[in-house]
Design a protein around this nucleic acid. Structure first.
Lengths: 209, 209, 209, 209
DNA sequence: GATGAATGAGCATTCATTCAT
DNA sequence: TATGAATGAATGCTCATTCAT
């Protein structure tokens, strides 16, 4: 019988469907990152959002849709900083910038991986995530950001004209994925610097021997 | 009606504990790959194995142990062929061999990724997988296999003396991980050839420009 | 079909949480007294209450809590009449009143004993019962009621000044326990009158020989 | 396929059905007293007896029969010492002897009560226990032992001729039951001496005021 | 006889979803 | 429109019992 949204919700939203939806998604992200995706039951999300369980269904049609949307939204937020990477062109050294990317992308992946892993483990959820990604496009494409950065450096003359920027970008992102994968698999906190690989790539980019 | 294993099980095993255990693990892998790890309930596994639910517990002490063992065992089987990769040293061309590796490792990863992802999504299961991996050591380490291959090529003179074989191996494996990740995330069947990246790596290996 | 309580439940409650809780507790008592505490599974209780199994958990957090509460509540109800016993002081004869107590307490114990026995047999349940008893205090203490009655009789002059009322009360309650125990152990319906023991006690109380 | 009983069993029995049965009952008693009746699964009993689970069914037709028999046997053993009580007639003082009885019977009841409680909680088991008791008759009847003791004292002149020995015996046993009951219900280790009640009884026995 | 694996009903509990209020 | 109680299927796991060997 109680009609208005609880005060605690109105305190952080204007009560509009969009904002309430966003509020619920934030709650879902909170729960998922704190306790894991499997702990993100509708009850837990509703509690975190300070809403009744039934209310969720006024904003999302199933738990799957809600969780998928939360995963994608969180991924977008976490990778947002990557969009700024091309702006580093011309600053520091190329090697140091690539190193920086590996470190930052690594941190971002650490936060995303558990959520995407949960999606990979559940075909229905994975489908929902895919649908959601299509709607949310363009996703932050890390390889594209790196390529953009390298092309800028090429224009600045800090990278050889013939360098295959796309290939180097792909490789760099691959390294990040590998690192995150290994870290999770072996419960390691070590964050490899990838010095040697970056050196190899820089040589390739600059044409030095 | 308690005693003999059902005919359907005896048809594919000799009834020995080892084979029954393997049969159950196969059933678990079947279910997990077909329906996702989250659908691999004890009931579903028992049904797939054509066994009663209680019987599972004569062979495994918890569902977690059973699933973890199935994941690790499947991973070992799928990556077994990688151990043979170093033997390609001296055959074909280095580029073609690396290409071959990317393709084969990609196929293997496609089969493993969903299972490992499920482990990543469930802390308890991940722990069990780690324990299981320790028992099953040595795991097939793809980067080590590639490095071994490259070192052999260097001995054969097909790779420059100064080439950083370890770094190239790391990069190659990173590419594979990235490919598999992208493929799963986007439900793609495309298998990128990674021609350009391999070219870059070969140049680095041979010291050509 | 999720929402309203079934008609059969609304027929005996007003639908308020307190009454539904009481209804569930009654169902639990029914099952326990009819089939034994070991048969009081959540399913059986839910069925007796004409509710879905999950609904129980909206009113009690575990089966143990539910069963313990049912046991204590039932015990309180059954022993409620004992609180009125002291009011008999001055009426009838002391012997007849003690006889009356033995009979009434015996009937009450017959209904309680199997439930308390079940608690004795299950450490976890026993703990829960103890906790519940603390909350429900003051429990009806039969010995205290008898002592209170005897002290009143002493004030009225129907019991000798030097009589040890506490000791007599203890003894009387002990007789009741013994009777109930024997009755249950031997599936007997016989209700011993305890004439001779009461005579002995009355002599002690009145100082007659 | 293994035919003979395991060595560990043959080490403590002669392999005859009676002794094997007794061995199994001992194992059951061990488990029940150590872990509680609810932990006395057939598996646990078989393990304690160092026998295969199926073997139990060559000696007992159901778990219920086995457990009931173990309970009754244990009760007989524990109360065996009571048979010796009448021999105390003429020694010490009557009061002290009654005190001794209360203490000893209390200890015995503490060991029996959890087992009988479990039986009271489960109608099927209780029936089995009753059947078993009929077969095992005569049970050690504590009240009868006390009465026998008191009659002997009467013959010795330490108890008045007119004393109602039967009634006093009943009362004393009732006190023991009550004590055990209270102890279990309140998780108490206190063992009340029952000084005042015994004094009352002794006065009744000796005709003193 | 002794074995121990197979059985499947049974257990307490959780959960996404619904819908009368 | 928000609520929160009702639902009942599903979960991992245990257990007494059977019976081919």
């Amino acid at each position: 019988m109680p009609r208005p949204l609880p005060d605690s919700v109105l305190a952080v939203t204007d009560g509009s469907p969009e904002q309430v939806r966003a509020h619920i998604l934030s709650a879902a992200v909170q729960v998922m990152t704190r306790k894991g995706v499997s702990a993100a039951s509708t009850r837990a999300i509703a509690e975190e959002a300070a809403l009744s369980g039934g209310t969720l269904y006024n904003y999302f049609s199933t738990r799957e849709e809600l969780v998928a949307r939360a995963i994608v939204r969180h991924s977008l937020e976490v990778t947002a900083s990557i969009a700024a990477f091309p702006a580093r062109a011309g600053t520091h050294t190329v090697a140091r910038n690539l190193q920086f990317f590996v470190t930052e992308a690594g941190k971002a992946l650490d936060r995303i991986l558990p959520l995407l892993a949960a999606a990979f483990a559940d075909p229905g959820l994975l489908d929902a995530v895919r649908r959601e990604m299509l709607d949310s496009f363009p996703l932050n494409d890390p390889a594209a950001a790196v390529e953009k950065y390298l092309l800028a450096e090429r224009r600045l003359g800090r990278v050889a004209t013939g360098a295959d920027c796309r290939a180097v970008a792909s490789i760099l992102v691959g390294l990040c994925h590998d690192d995150a994968f290994q870290r999770h698999l072996h419960a390691s906190d070590e964050r490899p610097t990838r010095h040697k690989e970056i050196t190899l790539l820089v040589r390739s980019l600059t044409g030095t021997r």
